[in-house]
């Protein structure tokens, strides 16, 4: 470690201690566990600053926060998954004994097939077995068995996606493109003469409504032409594809601009934590 690094480190530690002590004193009136609370708030604040230090450059404090975050979050999901899914939902359905052992209400039952009652518990032993097969990856010989649960997941969701997207992204979208290009209620088409002599440029007027419908119509078709892969984009086809990519770009710009403003509010939230909860500068 270089000398500067040592000095910086000492400074950070000193600041941490000072912050802890001051915060503990401030919190003494409101909380019995002020020392622990002050420590935790200070930790949170320093981790926040450590992440922000990344904006300057990669440094040991960022690395520390990053590695800690990775470890803690991975464990968090595992613990959460164990208690809520395995203990909370899976085990009580597997057998009454397991449910009693884990002090959960047993959720048994069966599907009446007429001839006999098919117990639900069998249906939950299957994923347990498949899940264990997945863990076979860790053994050098049994790795191929782990493809079975994978096949189940991929097959099921592929089938589901196939019909679902065919409906929502294809049929529904195609149907939505059938827009009136000439007037309809509340602005029925009364010929070109009428249209131009009563040209209404306001946002709710007929001109804007029709223009918008034409833009949607042309935009969708040129956009689709841009996505043609098996034909060269030359000639009229190429021109339409150019228009398509222009409209795509305008769209991307608009949604980019729209998101910028949303992101700023996140920053404001974080600064509020630093200045209010930690430093107490604003109330």
């Amino acid at each position: 470690m270089s000398r500067t690094a040592v000095i910086v480190f000492a400074g950070v530690v000193a600041l941490f201690v000072v912050s802890w002590m001051v915060k503990a004193m401030v919190l003494a009136d409101v909380s019995e566990t002020n020392i622990v609370d002050a420590f935790m708030v200070t930790v949170a604040a320093f981790l926040t600053l450590a992440i922000y230090s990344f904006l300057y450059k990669d440094n040991p404090y960022y690395k520390f926060a990053e590695h800690l975050f990775v470890g803690v979050s991975a464990a968090f999901w595992m613990v959460q998954g164990f208690w809520t899914t395995i203990v909370g939902n899976l085990l009580p359905r597997l057998s009454e004994g397991l449910a009693t052992w884990f002090q959960q209400p047993y959720q048994g039952g069966g599907y009446d097939l007429g001839v006999f009652v098919f117990p639900y518990s069998i249906m939950y032993w299957i994923p347990v077995i498949l899940g264990s097969l997945l863990l076979m990856r860790l053994s050098p010989q049994g790795g191929w068995l782990s493809r079975w649960p994978l096949a189940l997941i991929v097959g099921t969701t592929a089938g589901l996606n196939f019909v679902r997207y065919l409906r929502s992204d294809f049929i529904v979208q195609v149907a939505a493109t059938f827009v009136p290009l000439f007037g309809r209620d509340p602005h029925p088409w009364q010929g070109f003469g009428h249209f131009f002599s009563n040209l209404d440029l306001s946002a709710s007027g007929q001109f804007v409504a029709l223009l918008s419908n034409w833009v949607i119509f042309i935009g969708v078709f040129c956009g689709l032409i841009y996505f043609f892969f098996s034909k060269e984009h030359t000639g009229a086809f190429g021109k339409a594809s150019r228009v398509g990519i222009w409209i795509l770009m305008i769209t991307f710009g608009a949604s980019f601009g729209y998101t910028v403003m949303g992101r700023i509010s996140l920053l404001v939230g974080r600064l509020t934590f630093l200045f209010r909860d930690w430093l107490g500068l604003i109330s």
């Binding site: 975050f69 990775v70 968090f76």
Partner: peptide, 18 residues
């Protein structure tokens, strides 16, 4: 595997990039 949390994953991948 890194982790199952969106921003922890980002932190780690950003670290790798730098």
């Amino acid at each position: 595997f890194v982790t199952n949390l969106q921003f922890a994953y980002v932190a780690a991948v950003n670290g790798i990039m730098l």
